[in-house]
Simulated scan of single mutants.
Amino acid sequence: MRTRALAALAALTLAGAVLAGCGSASAPSAPTGVDGLEIPTPDPRPADFVARIGNPWLPLAVGSRWEYADLATGSVDLTLTVEAGPSVDGVATTTLVRAAADGAVVRDLYAQDRAGNVWWFGREGQWQAGEGGAEAGLAMPAAPRFGDGFRTASAPGLSEVATVADVGEEITVPLATYHRTVTLDVEDATGVRTETYARGVGLVRTDDAGLVAYEPGRE
Rank of each mutant, 00 (worst) to 15 (best):
I53T: 09
E83H: 15
Q126Y: 10
V88N: 01
L158K: 01
A72P: 02
F121G: 04
G90D: 11
D108N: 15
E124Q: 14
G63L: 01
P59F: 00
G130M: 09
W127Y: 15
G149I: 09
V97F: 06
I53A: 06
G149V: 12
G157R: 06
R114A: 13
R145C: 00
S75F: 08
V105P: 04
A104H: 04
A92Y: 05
W57S: 06
G85N: 08
A101P: 15
A69C: 03
R114D: 08
P56H: 03
E135N: 12
V50N: 02
V97C: 06
G125I: 01
T79P: 04
Q126T: 10
R114Y: 03
A104T: 12
A134T: 11
A92S: 14
G74H: 15
L96Q: 14
R123F: 00
V118W: 00
G103V: 10
V105M: 01
S87T: 15
P59L: 00
N55I: 10
A153R: 14
V91Y: 07
G125D: 02
R114E: 10
P86C: 04
A72I: 02
L60W: 07
A101E: 13
L60S: 08
A72W: 01
A84N: 10
R52N: 10
G54N: 10
I53Q: 08
A153T: 11
G147E: 14
F121R: 07
A115K: 13
A92F: 09
G103S: 11
A104V: 06
G137F: 05
A115Y: 06
P59K: 00
G130P: 11
W127L: 13
G137A: 05
Y110C: 04
P86I: 02
V62T: 10
P144G: 03
T79M: 11
W57P: 09
G122D: 00
D108Q: 15
Y110V: 04
I53L: 11
G149F: 12
A129N: 05
A115D: 13
R107Y: 01
L138Q: 01
L138W: 00
T93I: 01
P56W: 03
A134L: 06
S154H: 11
N55D: 12
G74L: 15
D70A: 12
A47S: 15
V76K: 14
T94V: 15
W119S: 07
L80W: 14
G74T: 13
P144M: 01
A111W: 03
W66V: 01
L109D: 05
E83L: 13
A69V: 04
A101K: 14
T81H: 13
P156D: 02
D77F: 11
A155Q: 02
G74S: 15
R145Q: 07
W57T: 07
A129R: 02
V105I: 11
Q112M: 07
G147K: 12
A61F: 08
A51D: 13
E135W: 12
E131F: 10
R52S: 08
A100Y: 13
R151S: 14
T93E: 01
E124R: 15
R98Q: 14
Y110L: 09
